[in-house]
Structure formats: structure tokens, C-alpha cells
């Protein structure tokens, strides 16, 4: 069964690279937020709000959000094409996998819109 048609970049090598670049972006953002919180104990709302009203923090957050979506799509595609297969799920496997991927896509778009609302709504 051809599975590449629902992969992120239609190419294993491209997906491999996107997975790593997005991972580095998310790791950098996680370290940034964790260390910011650790170095500013008992922080007030004003300081937190000022941090996220800076353009570079919003862009960094948006890059991370896009990375989450790409990374999750590639990772979950790998999981779904391994387990929702005809050998494991019978003849309905492809239908099941496509339904699962549509649900994932809806969740991913929801996360994207929600995240943009959070950072540009303040």
C-alpha cells in the first residue's frame, strides 16, 4: 500500500530533515521558556505579558508552533503507517488511517489558530 501520499513532504529524506530542524527549534524554545521561568521566580503578570508582547518572542513562539505541527504530523504518520496496516487491522486499515489523519489535521489546525490567537491577542 502506498503511504507516501499522506506523508508531510512526500519524501522520506525531506521528512527526516524537517523532523530534525523542527526538533532543534522546539528544544531551543523549551530551554528558553524553562530557564526564563527558573530565573524569574515569583514573576508578576506585567513582566510575563511584556515578554510575549515583543515581536521576536511572538515569532519564536510561532516558529515553535509550526514546528510542533510538522513534527507531530511526521511522527504520527510513522506510527499510523506502522500500526494501521492491512496486516494488523484488516481490509479497512487504509480507511481507518485516513480517518485518523483527518482528525490529526483538524487538531493541528486548531492548535495553530489557537496559538496565533494567544500570542497576537494580548
Amino acid at each position: 500500500m502506498v503511504t507516501a501520499v499522506t506523508s508531510f513532504g512526500r519524501s522520506g529524506l525531506y521528512d527526516w530533515l524537517v523532523q530534525r530542524v523542527s526538533a532543534v527549534a522546539m528544544a531551543a524554545y523549551t530551554l528558553f521558556i524553562v530557564f526564563y521561568l527558573l530565573l524569574n521566580p515569583g514573576m508578576e503578570y506585567a513582566q510575563w505579558q511584556t515578554l510575549f508582547s515583543q515581536l521576536w518572542v511572538r515569532i519564536f513562539t510561532l516558529i515553535t508552533l509550526v514546528s510542533v505541527i510538522a513534527h507531530a504530523w511526521i511522527g504520527l504518520w510513522a506510527v499510523l503507517t506502522d500500526y494501521l496496516t492491512e496486516r494488523m487491522m484488516g481490509s479497512k486499515a487504509v480507511v481507518l488511517r485516513l480517518i485518523a489523519q483527518v482528525i490529526l489535521a483538524v487538531v493541528a489546525v486548531t492548535y495553530a489558530v489557537w496559538g496565533i490567537e494567544i500570542i497576537w491577542g494580548i
Binding site: 503578570y45 506585567a46 510575563w48 505579558q49 510575549f52 510542533v68 507531530a72 511522527g75 504520527l76 506510527v79 490529526l104 487538531v107 492548535y111 489557537w114 496559538g115 490567537e117 494567544i118 500570542i119 491577542g121 494580548i122
Partner: peptide
């Protein structure tokens, strides 16, 4: 990884609640 895709909702909820208002 699968768990984190759901966990992202928790992280977004934390971010939203922390930034909405004082």
C-alpha cells in the same frame, strides 16, 4: 510523542490562561 501531541493542548491552555489578563 503520541502523548505529547495531546499534551500540547495542556501547554497551550497554560499559555492562554497566563497571558489573557492579570
Amino acid at each position: 510523542g503520541v502523548f505529547l501531541f495531546a499534551g500540547t493542548a495542556v501547554l497551550l491552555w497554560l499559555l492562554a490562561a497566563s497571558l489573557r489578563s492579570e
